[in-house]
Amino acid sequence: MKPESAAAGEPLVRAVGVGKSYRRGGREVVALRGVDLTIPRGATVALTGESGAGKSTLGRLLALAERPSSGEVEVAGRATSGLRAAARLALRRRLQLVPQDAAGTLSPRFSCLQAVAEPLAIAGWSRRRRRRRAAELLAEVALPAAVADRPALAASGGEKRRLVLARALACEPELLILDETFVGLDLSVQARLVNLLLELKERRRLTYLLISHDLSLVAHLADRVAVLAGGRLVEDRPRGGPQAIFRPLPPP
C-alpha cells in the first residue's frame, strides 16, 4: 500500500481554501471557512482550538469522511473532489480517522477480535487470515490476547482506544487522524498510549494529525501546530518552544 519512494516531508494531505457549512434547523451554520493546511508526510501536526472551532469537522474532511462545501482536499498531490465513489472509498483506507467517541464506533454485537478484523473482512480476507492478523494487531497495540473474545463494548476506556487504534491500523494507513484520543483517560493510561503512538509512528512510518485541546500533550508530541478559531486557521507554525504555544489565543 505504502509507496516506499515517497519521501518524508512532501505533502501527504493538503486542504486548499476548504470551507464547510451545514444546514441545521433550516439555518445555515458555517463550520469552516477558507482553511489552508498542509500535513507533510512523516510529520505530527497538532490541530488545536476552542471547542466548536471546527477541529473535528476539518479532521473529517481530511479523512474524506465528508466533502467540503468549497475548496479542495488533495491527497499526495491529487485532487479528491472529482474521484468516483469506489476510488474515494479505497483512498479512505489510507487516511484513518480515530474518532473522539471510541465506544460509539464499536458495534455492540462484535467481539474485540471481530472489531479489529472488520477492515480485513471488508477487504475480503479469509476468516483464518483475518483471525491471525487481528491477533497480531491486538499484540501490536499491547492488548492481551485474552480480550479477543470478549464483547468490544465490555473493554475499559483505555482498552477501547487501543482497540479502535488497532482497527485503524488494520487498514495499513499512512495518516492517522487522532481526534481527542486522550480525553477522559487516567494520566498513567494516557502516558502509555502516548508512548505506544510514538512507537507505532517509528515502526510504521506514520503521519499523525493530532486533534486536541490539551496543550501540554501537543507540546510533547507535535512538530507543527495549527490553531483554529471560529472556523478559520489563525496560526500554523512549527513548534517553537512552549512559550509560543501558551500565548493567549487571538479573540475569535
Binding site: R92, G104, T105, I122
Partner: peptide
C-alpha cells in the same frame, strides 16, 4: 447514524456490507 457504521465506511465498506 451510529459511529460504527461511519467507521466501517472509513474502512472502505460497501453499501451491501
Amino acid at each position: 447514524r451510529r459511529g460504527y457504521v461511519g467507521a466501517a465506511r472509513g474502512f472502505g465498506a460497501s453499501h451491501v456490507y
